[in-house]
């Protein structure tokens, strides 16, 4: 296996169980910086849980047992004493369906900034415009910034959610099947945006769409039943998979 230049996140010996049911078993993954890492696998294989472990959204659930370590910038975020909200701000999250916050378009983008303590209206205005432009939404919504975000189309909402995540200045973007609720055009827009964003951000994308993975992945982690079956750079992974189960999956034997 080719060595990765700089791992942004290093996951070692991660085990996770909910109510004594093992969801993740002995996960060892290194996520490269400024690349798109795709977590691939059939639904129910634990890839979403792995994603949520990265920004500790797993804290929300009862009866979760986690062992192992997730190291981000020399800090084990599973066992850290530092403020979890600061760690979460290092990562933007994009979920399967867009969940706009129950406020205006402007409010959605400025929410995270206000939480961080940015109060000046001028700065907020500026940032809102900047990030809406970054996701190509500015022209579509500039006239109705103070309308409720729920009035946007699903595709626009998903881009808004992306902009909202970028606004808090993350280094990593976590995306959980972000195109599964979108029409083909909106999906394409999101994918194209990811390819641009990877210059400045590290992206982790969960998907079960093989073709999507082939289109944008730099590095692939294939998971099945809570375990990592195989991982490697995308080209290698798709052209010459090593494990039998990977081959079967790539042929479409199970989904």
């Amino acid at each position: 296996m080719t060595t990765i230049i700089t791992p942004k996140i290093k996951i070692s010996e991660l085990n996770l169980s909910i109510d004594k049911q093992e969801i993740l078993k002995n996960i060892n993954v290194e996520i490269p910086e400024n690349k798109i890492t795709v977590l691939l696998g059939p639904s129910g294989c634990g890839k979403t849980t792995l994603l949520k472990t990265l920004n500790r959204l797993t804290d929300l659930y009862d009866n979760v047992k986690i062992s192992g370590s997730v190291i981000l910038d020399n800090e084990d975020i599973l066992h850290t004493k530092s403020d979890i909200t600061k760690i979460r701000q290092k990562m933007g999250l994009l979920s399967q369906r867009p969940y706009p916050l129950p406020m205006s378009i402007y409010g959605n983008i400025s929410y995270g900034l206000k939480i961080k303590g940015v109060k000046k209206k001028k700065i907020l205005d500026e940032r809102v415009e900047h990030y809406l432009k970054e996701v190509n939404l500015w022209e579509e919504v500039r006239e109705r910034l103070h309308h409720p975000a729920s009035a946007l189309s699903i595709g626009q909402q998903q881009r808004l959610c992306l902009a909202r995540g970028l606004a808090v200045g993350p280094e990593i973007i976590l995306a959980d099947e972000p195109t599964s609720a979108l029409d083909p055009l909106s999906s394409q827009a999101i994918e194209e945006m990811f390819l641009i964003l990877k210059k400045n951000y590290t992206l982790v994308l969960v998907t079960h769409i093989l073709r999507q993975a082939k289109r944008i992945a730099d590095y692939v982690v294939f998971m099945y039943l809570g375990e990592v079956v195989e991982q490697g750079p995308a080209e290698e992974f798709f052209s010459s998979p090593k494990m039998e189960r990977t081959k079967a999956y790539l042929k479409g034997a199970f989904n």
């Binding site: 929300l60 909200t85 916050l101 929410y111 995270g112 939480i115």
Partner: peptide, 14 residues
């Protein structure tokens, strides 16, 4: 939906 809380939390809100 739980995802709404998750969205807010991942933006750094407590």
């Amino acid at each position: 939906p739980e995802e709404l809380s998750e969205a807010s939390l991942s933006l750094g809100a407590t």
